[in-house]
Design a binder for these strands. Structure first.
Length: 498
RNA sequence: GGCCCCAUCGUCUAACGGUUAGGACAUCAGGUUUUCAACCUGGUAACCCGGGUUCGACUCCCGGUGGGGUCACCA
């Protein structure tokens, strides 16, 4: 209906108050998907109307996170080629603190049309009112005291207004009836007016509240779909009322359920990582994170059992109607599994590129990319995140391996026999002409058979001698990567320990 | 407390009146194997409760219970 006549325009409108919550990332994803699948526009708008909560650098951080996941805005606040914050688009500015005059103008319109009114109540009176209501088990709401002020009284108070006086503009909610809107995810939502507060639209400091700013901006920016968290569901009627008061057509709404902690409360910092930045540093792949968020909040339906989706596929298959109404527990186990799947499917060159910063940070020399690729190939199937790799590959970068001598002995192997086997193995390998994994395996396996030994009593000590670890890739692979000289050195060193 | 939203294995979910209630993660057992990982095979495990409607309800309706959200000059 709406989208047939208007190009789809969606937005992500965060407050610059710190990190980016994974729930916000879910919101970004669904907005972005809708824009892409309708060839629409994804806008980033900054909602900084609360001057007390601003965090320096938060906008840059948001943009950085969006760039990391590859869901960059088409319009609004963007990063330019120099990495500087910039604004593009015809409906700017896209930062609310730069639109103050605009809000003022629309509030006046509301005042004139009788949909809003002046309020001079002090915080003390409001506080007392709330206390009283709470004690009587009533919902804490404004009692419309200032609505009954005569026009003369209002005019008088306005002219005598002094700095520091309390003066706000409130929404005049009709006393009777109810407001209805159709949510794309939840269906029809009806709210009786007696439970809708005459909320503040314009604050004493001249800044708008969220409710005013979001409606004015979404309308002026021609937003067609408002996809946001469920925390806004309860105030959506206020927004619809405002659209009606202005005589505007409301956008389509879709309220997303929250991601949950294991105890089913709203996902919080206490119980795990909620910042997207955390997942970045902990070595999750953005494609895995997005895939994970998509399948926990949405399902393709029609009997599909697919779980791995590329962004491209999601663009094709996503639909708001199939977004779940129920809040979903953030299942870290499943994210780990998915991340592992992506890691294992990735080609070695790409994986090496992605993991290099983690190795560099851990202090390893990463200049030899050919060597790096070989190491990465060996560990690819046993890492769950990029960040765990550095701790697993130490033996590729040092020649002084620290391990307990006992570790060299396989099960109930005899110490002397193990020593002897290693010494014989050194002799055998010294004579080997070519040195690659396949040749090593063939050669050593036949040698073991010829010596009438078992695989375990040779391969276990060999692997430990090469890696110094109780778990690692196989001995042939390690030997191939570290080369003949170092292999023989390590085997001799191990034999000498015994 | 008012209002709104929600309800299938431990977790994420499929089902759209008739199925042995399917899949995935996790878990358990086995296989493969020098270890770990990966991989393969198999198992345990769910329709919140009570009324209706219907020949027949996980599916539709009502009530209850439970969970979540919201009720600021925060967003």
């Amino acid at each position: 209906m709406l989208q047939k006549h208007h190009p789809v325009r969606v937005r992500f409108a965060p407050s610059p108050t710190g990190f980016v919550h994974v729930g916000s990332l879910l919101t970004v994803l669904f907005n972005w998907l809708l824009a892409r699948q309708h060839d629409g526009t994804f806008i980033l708008r900054i909602e900084d109307t609360d001057q007390h909560r601003l965090v320096p650098g938060a906008v840059e951080n948001i943009l950085k996170v969006l760039a990391w996941v590859g869901l960059n805005p088409d319009e609004g606040v963007v990063l330019d080629s120099q990495g500087q914050i910039n604004q593009i688009g015809a409906d700017g500015p896209y930062i609310q603190s730069q639109r103050l005059d605009l809000y003022r103008q629309y509030v006046d319109q509301l005042l004139e049309s009788g949909h809003a009114y002046h309020c001079f109540c002090s915080p003390e009176r409001l506080e007392k009112l709330r206390q009283n209501q709470t004690e009587r088990k009533l919902p804490p709401m404004y009692d419309k005291y200032c609505l009954s002020l005569s026009p003369e009284a209002v005019a008088e108070k306005l002219t005598n207004l002094r700095a520091g006086d309390h003066h706000v503009i409130r929404l005049k909610v009709p006393p009777d009836g109810s407001t209805v809107f159709e949510d794309l995810i939840r269906g029809r939502v009806e709210t009786p007016h007696h439970s809708v507060d005459d909320c503040v639209l314009l604050k004493s400091d001249g800044f708008p509240t969220y409710h005013l700013a979001v409606v004015v901006d979404d309308h002026l920016m021609a937003i067609t779909h408002v996809i946001r968290g469920q925390e806004w569901l309860a105030s959506a009627p206020k927004h619809v009322l405002l659209y009606q008061a202005f005589g505007w057509t409301p956008p389509l709404f879709a309220h997303l359920s929250h991601l949950l902690n294991t105890d089913r409360s709203k996902l919080s910092k206490r119980q795990g990582d909620v910042a997207v930045e955390e997942y970045m540093t902990r070595g999750y792949l953005p494609e895995a994170l997005l895939n994970f968020l998509a399948i926990t909040a949405w399902n393709e339906g029609e009997g599909s059992e697919q779980e791995i989706y590329s962004l491209k596929e999601l663009v094709k298959k996503f639909s708001l109607e199939r977004v779940h109404k129920t809040g979903a527990v953030f299942d870290l186990d499943k994210l780990n599994w998915l991340n592992g799947m992506y890691l294992r499917q990735m080609d070695i060159a790409e994986l090496t590129k992605r993991v290099t910063p983690y190795l560099t940070r851990a202090g390893y020399d990463t200049t030899d990319t050919v060597y790096l690729k070989k190491i990465v190939a060996l560990e690819q199937e046993r890492i769950k995140t990029l960040a765990e790799l550095p701790a697993m590959v130490d033996y590729f970068f040092t020649d002084t391996l620290e391990y307990q001598t006992e570790l060299l002995m396989w099960k109930k192997s005899d110490r002397r026999q193990t020593k002897n086997n290693l010494e014989q193995l050194v002799l055998y390998l010294s004579a080997m002409a070519s040195w690659d994994e396949k040749k090593l395996e063939e050669g050593i396996m036949t040698w073991i058979a010829e010596q009438q030994l078992t695989n375990g009593e040779v391969l276990w000590p060999m692997r430990v001698a090469l890696s110094g670890q109780d778990k690692s890739p196989g001995p042939f692979a390690i030997a191939a990567v570290i080369g003949k000289t170092r292999t023989l050195e390590r085997l001799r060193h191990a034999a000498a320990k015994l």
